[in-house]
Design a protein around this nucleic acid. Sequence first.
DNA 1: CCCCCCCC
Length: 959
Amino acid sequence: MRIKRRPVPNRTAREISIEVSRSLDTPGLHAHQGSNTLSAGLSGAIDVGHRGTTPVFSPTVSATVQNGLYPTAVFCDIPGPSSSTDEPGTGHGVNNGSVSVGMSVLPHGLDLPVGVPAQVYTVDGLVSNFEIANVVPPPSVAARQRTTAEDSIHAGDVGRVPMVLDFSSGCVVLNPNLAPFNTRRGERQGRISGSSSTGDTDSPQVQGPVAPPQREGWPFVTCLQVPLWSIGLLEDVTKSANTAGHFLGRGEEEISAYFCSTAIPTLLRFWLSHFESHERRALREPIIQGLIGFLNENNALVKLFRTARDKLLQADIPNFSIRLFGVVGAHQYELPTADSVGAIVYDGGPEAVTDYDVVIERHSGEPESVNKLHPAYMALQFPLLFVYGEEANSDCSAYPHVPRKMALITDAGTSSKSTDKAVVPSRQLAYLAELNPTDNSKFIEVKVYRKWTTVKIPGFVPTAFSCMLLDKKGTAIQANADIKEKARFDHDLQLNCVYKIEGFGFDRPDSWGKTLDNDITLCFGKYTQVQLLQAKDFPSHYFNFAAFNELNARLEKKNLTLTDYIGYVHNVEKAKEYGGATTTRVKVRNIGIRNLNNNVVLFTLWNEDADNFPEGEYAEMKQPVILAVSSCYLKRYADLDSPLISEFIGQIQLSATSATRYYFNPDVPETGELLAAYSDANMTIPQLDIHTERLTNWEEERNRNRVPLATLLQIDPKTQQVQEANTIITKYCQPNILTKFNFTQRVLFTQDAMILQVDAGHDWYYQKCDECGGKLRYGYLHGQCHQYGTTPNPQNSYCFRIVITDGTANALMSCFTPQTDGLIKDVNTLLEEVDTKDPATIPPAILALQNTRHIFQFQFATPTLKGPPTFILKKIMDNPQLALLEPSAGPSSPQTNLPESPTDEGSTPPPATPTVTQDTPAGEPTETQHPLQSAARKKLFVPTTEEESNPALKKHKKD
DNA sequence: CCCCCCCC
């Protein structure tokens, strides 16, 4: 039953209770005299705060008072017969105007004034007032049984048997002398409205619960009003959280009939566990047995559920359940009239739900529909033990049945007696893993590890204060508080401080945005107590890192548990702003996180987080920087402009959420692993300081990426896939420099190197199609890129290969036109000079390049299956003037030519792919091709291998 | 109560 309630301070409660008393006079209530039932004997508890409203008290109270034997309910400040019937002889009747109903469980001191309410605080800030009733001052032990036994209704029977429990003697006695009250049986109404206020003025006046119960002089009071469903739940939940969860859905709870008397011993044991030993001693076994027996025999709800169980066991009633309906609004403090609560038979069909509020089947067999708001249901909310509110606040909706607190809070300062006695059952320390939603007797000592504001989307409206807490064992749990409490908890719970926390509730985590994998979230509320500790030895971090290869599965599984990830900071982009006045304005900052296998995933920070990334701090840090990110939302981010296949499919993105926090070089084992691996790599292979941006300064440009050839050659030559090649390359690159990583084509290196040799085994020139750049083979038509009837205009191009050395290693480099400008004269000029046009015969002018030294700018050719990487000459940088005229295919002006022509011969240079190979001219950097670049790339960023095998992909330009 | 993570 979930009822949203507001805290009601005593003063307010007092005021409200007056209204209640009026409503209690309504015939609708008194027509059912059994209304006393639920509170009979063990009842009479005044539930104020628990429901956040006003005391409710049953006719039992009146009866008791009238009887004069026991001071129970006294409604002061409220004119009414009840007050006047309070007999002086009781000596306890009036106590500061409070209502006293309940039962003392004090082992001694039973001369304490009765009628002093106990006030208990629920986790959500509600105040529950419980009072003592049926207290039997020792040595008298008495109880009265109602004299009227006319009621054939089971539930009603119960209610009219006030029970007196004398804990000092251990006796449980029915009080036969207790005058029946409310004996007038109201005509059964087909429909009972709990809120009705009409008619039936004949009903005995019931004194409205009134006085806001105030605690005075009672060190400890409790109430034995037990919601039987709570009893059931107590056990049920213990046995099976699932059952309990189902059981307590929202609003209306379907309750299995399983629990009846069997749960009671459990309850009592549970209850007893909260007493001090000396108190417990007084609660001797006979008493317990008596309680059990009493509840079994007399509690209307026990009967109700027993009836339900019996019904359920009847095979001919297939669709049977009990429904307890939530009571909301002003009706919640109305008097329980338990005799109207029979077995609640519910047909199970949709019509049954809509056509009736509740269908009650009495033992007599007569069905009766009852308004959902009928106060009978309030009886179900009267807790015996769970004085802190099974209901608790609405934030803790998932476990409304779970008692939030067990401790009764007394006001020691005003206590006239027994102030030295411990009146608040103390909680015990529990580790987070030991917490149980059914147990509120624990406190925790935790470090505030993270805190954030949970938001609701769309709109990102703040809904809660949230934090993640760590205990000493390293277990983590999330705690939430209503957004209204944010300021307080934000202040009281400081990051990385340790606190003792008690008085919290439990909830199920939201299915989305789960930060943790566990099934419990703590609920903090108004009465959550926080105490700063000077504790040490708390773990510094809690992560549940996903591996790179797990990300996809998590993504596809729609696993809404947020993801933690760790790796090297690969690169940090600047924050970019998108959108504008007409759309959504958003700031984005992407950070590449690379793992040990050189897989890079994107970590995205949004808006303020994007702005607040500590760029300066990061820049100061020693490389490499390990970055651990937490609670990220996994998604795919399709960068349609990216030439990488993986990005077309959609690169996996770790999108920051409000719960996300990130940590540089966190003190976790993974950081050590990453750093160790990085060091290993450093020892064997020096880091490449790669600059992807073209430098405008010539001198800088010609010195850009001066990576020793020996280093470059260490790059795994077996790499075939573009992506793999990229990651291999990035492995040797300094983090935080590369933002895109299709380096195969893009990264330009420079080196001062000597030409050792010209490869004589390779043609030195070829005829290149002017349209596609493909090789024109002598004697073969090349019509695939020319309209029929047009004449190809082949151009000659160098394609000789040279072996260069920088002193560290030798490398093979292919030289195509026009990138050989500056190295050798134009190919056509040379052709006119040579004696033979045979491309296999290397002209002397080319051989003369041997043993000359130059500044080469070059890039990787497409990795080959075998052998070390080869390179493509991009530019001779000996001479600045020449170079300035050269177009470039560097990263800032990516290669754009998409030459076609099938690679019918792998060793010949028909440049058929956009990828550079040692046999392929690495660019056709004519400016006119640029407009085609983007579209072409979008269509064509497929693997080289696939492209080569699929001629259809190679269409271009002519379209 | 549902809705459920922003960007190119």
